[in-house]
Design a protein around this nucleic acid. Structure first.
Length: 336
DNA sequence: AATAGAATCAACCGCGGGGCC
DNA sequence: GGGCCCCGCGGTTGATTCTAT
């Protein structure tokens, strides 16, 4: 492919000038779109894992249709792919479960009193803040990616030793922002237990969707690796290990909505990702992004084994209660 | 086997933000 | 400050593939 080989050799440079340089008939905009969405070498194809879907749904609850921001946490997936998957799969599943995919509120929550306007407004308000911050982070990631690509092309072209790319600027500023935004809630002992999952085990102050809590050295340590790919390499390495393969049983301690899908009408669909379980392993995905427990509360607290419809609904309620609890707790933050 | 409808996904389009002059 | 250009994002479209009959 002309585009692929050209970008690998020269980098994309100016998208507008690329088609003529690469001898392509398409416009620059089309090339720009095709590269990150289809041709980029670190793109992961195929079905979404349970963890990936879970991440998408939870981030969507905070960010709405900010696909690029959501894609920041699924670095091997494109925003377009995530968007398509949401529209074709996840949206329908949530609807099928009686959950409004736009508000992420179970319809039954109105009955239970969890759908007050205040909560919705808070969710929206927080989403705006978080979205703005994530977009800023995404820009930094893009910058680091460009720097890394530039460095890679230099390696390819010169085959000589080149200084590693400089780290992205301004990370400290955002960290300070994060510190202000999250400190109070973190120290608030009255906050729901689920909220604790938003923070790293080592006590670092991280927002649930932050991508900035990686070691500063990581960018420098492996300059030949795409910075984003490095940062997000296998963010959820144990994403399927908690599912029992041979019997189809779910580990009762970690049952949740998504596993219910596996167990019910989606068992065939997810069959290829179900692998033998390691019962001693920790379910919670301590990913390299530093929000290891982001999904902890909503998953682990979602209830026990559920082989019947009633348990499913209970998990459903617990799941969304946890999401909303997290939001409410966050509203204690000075920022909000 | 043929067909219609549904599902999927790559690509397109328009808009808005940011940088530069 | 205003205009222009480039780029990225999100919504949408349409071609292709899959599934049910």
């Amino acid at each position: 492919h002309k585009l692929l080989s050209y970008i690998q050799q020269h980098g994309h440079g100016s998208w507008r000038a690329l088609p003529s340089k690469a001898g392509l008939q398409r416009c620059g905009k089309s090339c720009r779109l095709r590269w990150p969405n289809y041709l980029r070498p670190d793109i992961k194809r195929g079905k979404f894992s349970l963890q990936e879907e879970q991440t998408i749904i939870q981030l969507h609850a905070f960010l709405g249709n900010r696909w690029s921001a959501i894609a920041t946490h699924l670095p091997q997936r494109t925003d377009n792919e995530i968007k398509n998957h949401w529209n074709t799969h996840l949206k329908k599943r949530l609807t099928k479960m009686g959950i409004d995919p736009m508000t992420h509120k179970p319809k039954i929550h109105d009955v239970l009193g969890c759908g007050q306007p205040k909560v919705v407004a808070n969710l929206s308000h927080m989403a705006q803040w978080e979205s703005a911050r994530l977009q800023a982070e995404a820009r930094l990631v893009r910058e680091s990616r460009l720097l890394s690509n530039h460095y890679q092309s230099q390696l390819l072209n010169t085959a000589t030793e080149v200084a590693p790319p400089p780290r992205p600027p301004c990370l400290d500023v955002l960290k300070v922002w994060q510190g202000h935004a999250w400190t109070r809630s973190r120290n608030d002992v009255t906050a729901p237990a689920t909220f604790n999952g938003f923070f790293s085990p080592n006590g670092s102050l991280e927002s649930p969707t932050s991508i900035l809590n990686f070691s500063d050295n990581m960018l420098i340590a492996a300059p030949s690796t795409n910075a984003v790919g490095l940062l997000h390499e296998n963010p959820f390495p144990a994403h399927v290990n908690h599912v029992e393969h041979s019997s189809g049983q779910i580990d009762g301690k970690t049952s949740n909505l998504f596993e219910d899908w596996v167990k019910t009408d989606n068992s065939k669909e997810f069959g290829d990702v179900i692998q033998p379980i390691n019962h001693s392993s920790n379910y919670v995905a301590h990913d390299s992004l530093g929000f290891p427990g982001f999904m902890e509360g909503s998953i682990v607290c979602a209830g026990g084994p559920s082989d019947d419809v009633g348990a499913f609904e209970e998990n459903d309620i617990n799941y969304w209660n946890n999401v909303l609890n997290v939001v409410d707790a966050t509203m204690d933050s000075p920022v909000f």
